[in-house]
Design a protein around this nucleic acid. Structure first.
Lengths: 334, 334
DNA sequence: TTCCTGTGAGGAATCGTTTCCATTTATCTG
DNA sequence: CAGATAAATGGAAACGATTCCTCACAGGAA
C-alpha cells in the first residue's frame, strides 16, 4: 500500500501539495503540478489511509447501525433506507448485528465510540443496564434511536400502539369474542407497545383481559407455533389470534392447520410488520404495515443533522396501516 | 473523550506506563503505580482510540463482511456463523450490504482496503470488471470468498451444482416430464451453478433442454410469481417447477394457486436454500438445505488463518441436502 | 567505597494524514 | 529600481496510541 509520501516523492513535490490535490483544497496548485501528482496517484493506485485521516480530522464519514436480529426481514428495509441516504451524503455504513445479546450491544457501542464511527443509529428497542446507558448518554451528540427507549435521544418512532389497537379492533369488529395474543420479548419496547395497543382496544370495547389468552414468543415462527398451540389446546376456545409479528403469525397458522382448524373460517390471525413474504402466504396474512424504508431514511437524515449540529426535531413519528388480507374473517361460531 | 495523556496526567505517570498497564505488557509496572493508573482509567472511563492504535499497529481487529442482499434470509445464518467465531477470537464485524450494486461493492472494498478492516469475507458470487478485480487481487492476503468467483482466493464453497442436480432428479423420479426452471441473476455464479446442476440432471435422464421452460427472476417472490405465470400460461403444460431459491418458489406457488392449480397435485415445486419460513408454508416447501451457519464458521476460521498467514486449505466445500416436504408429488397426468 | 545488576519509569520516534505558517519566486505599481 | 503583492510550494506540528531505548536509583557483592 502506497502512502502520500510515496506519491510526493514520485511527483517530486511535498506531501502538503499532494494533500491539497487530493482534497482539491481552495489553495492554488499549479496546473502542471496537479497533473503530475494525479498521474502519480493513478500509477500507485494511491488511496489515503482512512485511519490516519480519521485520527486527525476526528471524522471518519462512517456511521454504524446496530440491529438486534439480521434474520428478521423487518430490519432489512430500514437498512436500505439508511444506506440510500448515507450513500448520497458520502457516508459509509457499518452494520452490527447483536442477536439481542447485551454483551454484543455494549461491545459495538464501544467500538463505535472509539471513533470508528461519526454516528450511530440504534434500533431494536432494548437499552438498559447501567453500562449501556451511561455510554450512550455520553454519545448524545451522535446517536439516533429507532423506537422507544429509556433514554431521551433524537428518535424515529413507529406507532406500534396505534397499529396494535387497529389490528385488535379489526378482530373485534369481525365479531371475535375470545382473542389470543402472542407477544414478543419481555424487554423489547416494540413488543410492549404492541401489547399495550392490544389491551387498549380490548378495554375500549369492554372486553375482559384474560391472562390465559396471553402468551409470549421470541419472534420466530417456531415460538409462534408453540404459543398458538397452547392457546388453541386450552379450554375455552378462541377464534382469533393477534401475533406481535408476522413470523409468529405464520407459526400460529401452522399450529391451527395441524389441529385441523381452517384459517380464516375457524381461526382468524393477524400479524404485524408486513414482511415481503406475508402476501405470499396461504392464506395471505392480514397484518399491520410499517413504512420501514421511510423510517430508515428519516433516521439517517436525522443523524446527519445531529452530527452537523443542526437544529433538529427530537422525534419523528410514523403511522401504520392495517392490511386486511385472507387470514381474517367473520366469527361464525356461537 | 479522554486520551491516554489525560490518564497519565491524572495518575502522574508517563503515557508509556499507562500503555503498559492497558496492554498488560510483560514490562514490569509497580503494583501501586498500576493501581493508581487503573483508578484513573476507571474515573475517566478511558478507552484507547482505535484509530490511533490501528494506525500504528496496522491491525484493527475488525473484519468486514460484504453481502449482496440483507433482506435475503439466506445470508443471515452465514453472518451468525461468522460473528460467533469472530467474537471468540476478539474480532469485531462490520457488515456491508451492497444490494448487488457494483458501485457499492467497489466502495466497500476500498473502504475496507483503506485499513479499516484486517480482512474481508466476500459473499454473493459476483466479482467482475477490472476495478473490482484488481483491487481484490492486491488484497489476496486478507480476503476469503464464499462461493465460486473469477478470482482464485481462499474460498468456502457450496455444492450448488450437486444440490440442483438432486432437486431436479427428485422431480424426474416423480415422473415429471416437462419441468420449468426459474433461474437467478445472470451474473450470479450461485445462480449459474444451480442452472448447471439442473441441466446436468436433465441430460443424465436424456430429457431435452427446452429454452421455453427456462425463465429468469431476481430472487424475489414477485419475480418468481411472474416467471411461473409465464411458464404456466404458455402452451405445452408443465407439471413441475424448480426455482433457484425459496422466495421465488413461493412466488411460483402463488401463481399456480391463482391459476387454479393445486400444489402438489397439479404442479410440483422445489426451492433452494431452506430459509426458516420454508417449512411453514402451505404446502411446506420441498427444498435444498445448505449448512449456512457452518459455511459462515468455516469462512471466518479460514480468514483468521489467512490473516495470521497460517498454512490454509484453499477451498472448503460443503454439501447440500434435499428436504422433501409437501410441495412435490407424483405426476399423475397423462 | 566502588561497581554491578535489576527494577521501574520516562523520552521520543513512529504510523499517515491535514493544515497553518513561512518561504521563494515572479509580477506589478509608482 | 525599490517595494509590495500574489502565486505556488514546502516545513513542521498535531491527532493518540505503542514500544524501543535510555536513565535513575536502590541494594548487594567485593
Amino acid at each position: 500500500m502506497s502512502t502520500i509520501l510515496d506519491v510526493a516523492r514520485r511527483a517530486k513535490v511535498s506531501i502538503a501539495t499532494v494533500s491539497r490535490v487530493m482534497n482539491n483544497s481552495p489553495h492554488k496548485v499549479n496546473q502542471s503540478t496537479r497533473e503530475r501528482i494525479l498521474e502519480a496517484i493513478r500509477e500507485l493506485d494511491y488511496r489515503p489511509n482512512a485511519l490516519a485521516k480519521g485520527l486527525l480530522m476526528k471524522k471518519t464519514m462512517t456511521i454504524g447501525i446496530i440491529i438486534p436480529d439480521i434474520s428478521n426481514t423487518y430490519y432489512a428495509e430500514i437498512v436500505r433506507g439508511i444506506q440510500d441516504v448515507a450513500d448520497q451524503s458520502g457516508y459509509a455504513v457499518m452494520l452490527q448485528n447483536t442477536d439481542r445479546k447485551q454483551e454484543r450491544i455494549i461491545n459495538y457501542i464501544y467500538l463505535l465510540r472509539e471513533k470508528l464511527a461519526d454516528g450511530i443509529i440504534f434500533s431494536g428497542g432494548i437499552i438498559h443496564g447501567y453500562e449501556t446507558l451511561s455510554t450512550l448518554k455520553e454519545l448524545r451528540e451522535r446517536v439516533v434511536v429507532i423506537g422507544r427507549h429509556e433514554v431521551d435521544f433524537p428518535a424515529v418512532r413507529v406507532d406500534n400502539i396505534g397499529g396494535a389497537t387497529q389490528a385488535t379492533q379489526h378482530l373485534i369488529d369481525l365479531g371475535h369474542k375470545r382473542i389470543g395474543f402472542i407477544g414478543g420479548p419481555e424487554r423489547s419496547t416494540t413488543a410492549i407497545d404492541r401489547f399495550t395497543g392490544c389491551k387498549s382496544a380490548l378495554a375500549q370495547n369492554s372486553y375482559p383481559i384474560d391472562g390465559s389468552l396471553i402468551k409470549r414468543g421470541n419472534l420466530t415462527p417456531q415460538s409462534g407455533y408453540l404459543a398458538a398451540k397452547e392457546l388453541l389446546e386450552q379450554s375455552g376456545k378462541i377464534t382469533a389470534i393477534f401475533a406481535a409479528n408476522d413470523q409468529m403469525a405464520f407459526g400460529a397458522i401452522n399450529a391451527a392447520k395441524e389441529l385441523g382448524l381452517n384459517v380464516p373460517d375457524d381461526l382468524s390471525v393477524v400479524g404485524f410488520d408486513n414482511i415481503p413474504l406475508s402476501s405470499y402466504f396461504e392464506p395471505p396474512l392480514t397484518t399491520v404495515e410499517i413504512p420501514m424504508y421511510d423510517v430508515g431514511v428519516a433516521a439517517m437524515r436525522m443523524l446527519i443533522d445531529v452530527i452537523s449540529k443542526k437544529s433538529i426535531e427530537k422525534v419523528k413519528f410514523f403511522g401504520t396501516k392495517l392490511l386486511i388480507r385472507g387470514s381474517t374473517g367473520k366469527n361464525f361460531k356461537k
